[in-house]
Write a protein that binds this DNA or RNA. Structure first.
Lengths: 179, 179
DNA sequence: CGATTCCTTGAGCAACCTCAAAAGCGGTGG
DNA sequence: CCACCGCTTTTGAGGTTGCTCAAGGAATCG
């Protein structure tokens, strides 16, 4: 799937998915109907497994970058206690990551997000400025300024990303750092 | 348990618990050893169920108010897929609540927390200023000023809380509101 | 090539932070 | 009972970060 595509909608029913590649945004929908950022899912995370029991998705999900999703569980009926518990533990840790993305100075929030999304080699395709702003609870103008600053200081460098059409990627310096 | 007591420590092993009453703080411990706020657990939430599978708690947990905890699951071996999945769904929603506590203006963050912690009747025992500050990513001086402002404007009123020794409680007006 | 959307940059302002001092609160021991 | 200690909370004054509003530039898509 490309960026900015809807995967499923809160309240609907359907399968669960594993994010094989890419970044997915989870939004909670208020009674009034407007959506607020709730969480992120990245490679390895499970999406929508609550629907297996409850028959309804909790969040509305949207791709923020090019994404690959695979049905979960791979084998029907294999959603046993152990795999669910592992999924729960991952979700808890991911939630703590997201909370951390909303604390501290603007530049630190953005760098924490960059590190969260970067692959081992330090390559990363960032979401749109407005999505980064929603994630970090900053304004998109602030995100723009911070990224400009990071480029000028050499922490981020624009690079071609192979295999992803029309996506501007970055190479990140100082990857192994303060978590 | 009283306030500011340690329940369990990240990396340790032990039982899982259900929060019957009170507010519990979850902290992630960095490799360097200093702890950062990760999440909250309130009445009904499950604590440390990841240790049932992994043999190690993910977070360090501390009580923020007077708390009652009960072992979970109530019946040994009853931690089946269904109850785990329900616990997972609750944890996801709680995580979204916490993320929301770190967005918007200071007064809105504090009020969102107050509403999250208040009981049906609108009574609430708040955590210490410093803990509220850690939760909302504000400074404790800011929390103090905001609470003073809420008292002066009549949104919060100091009250006696029955059955809790030496705890200053508040009554909250405007409970059923923007979530 | 025009339309739309996203991104960049600037200038002034408001919200929150920092630093500091003093007051309140709870426990301990004379 | 009162004096003292440590810790938390309150309050003030001034500084900084990030927000608001605005305008123009770049990218994308039909």
């Amino acid at each position: 799937m490309g960026p900015a595509e809807r995967i499923f909608v809160a309240g609907g029913d359907g399968l669960a998915w594993r994010v094989a590649h890419g970044v997915v945004r989870l939004d909670r929908i208020s009674p009034a109907g407007h959506s607020t950022f709730a969480s992120l899912a990245i490679a390895g995370d499970i999406l929508g497994c609550e629907a297996l029991l409850l028959g309804a998705y909790t969040f509305t999900t949207t791709t923020l970058t090019h994404c690959e999703l695979t049905p979960w569980p791979e084998v029907k009926g294999a959603a046993d206690g152990e795999s669910l518990l592992k999924s729960l533990a991952t979700a808890q840790r991911r939630a703590a990551d997201i909370v951390a993305l909303r604390g501290g100075q603007a530049i630190d929030r953005v760098m924490r997000l960059v590190r969260l999304l970067a692959d081992r080699a330090g390559k990363v395709v960032l979401p749109a400025r407005q999505d980064i702003a929603d994630i970090t609870d900053l304004r998109f103008e602030t995100i723009s300024r911070v990224i400009t600053q990071l480029e000028r200081s050499g922490v981020l460098a624009a690079v071609r990303i192979e295999g992803v059409r029309a996506a501007r990627g970055y190479a990140v310096r100082y990857l192994p750092d303060t978590q």
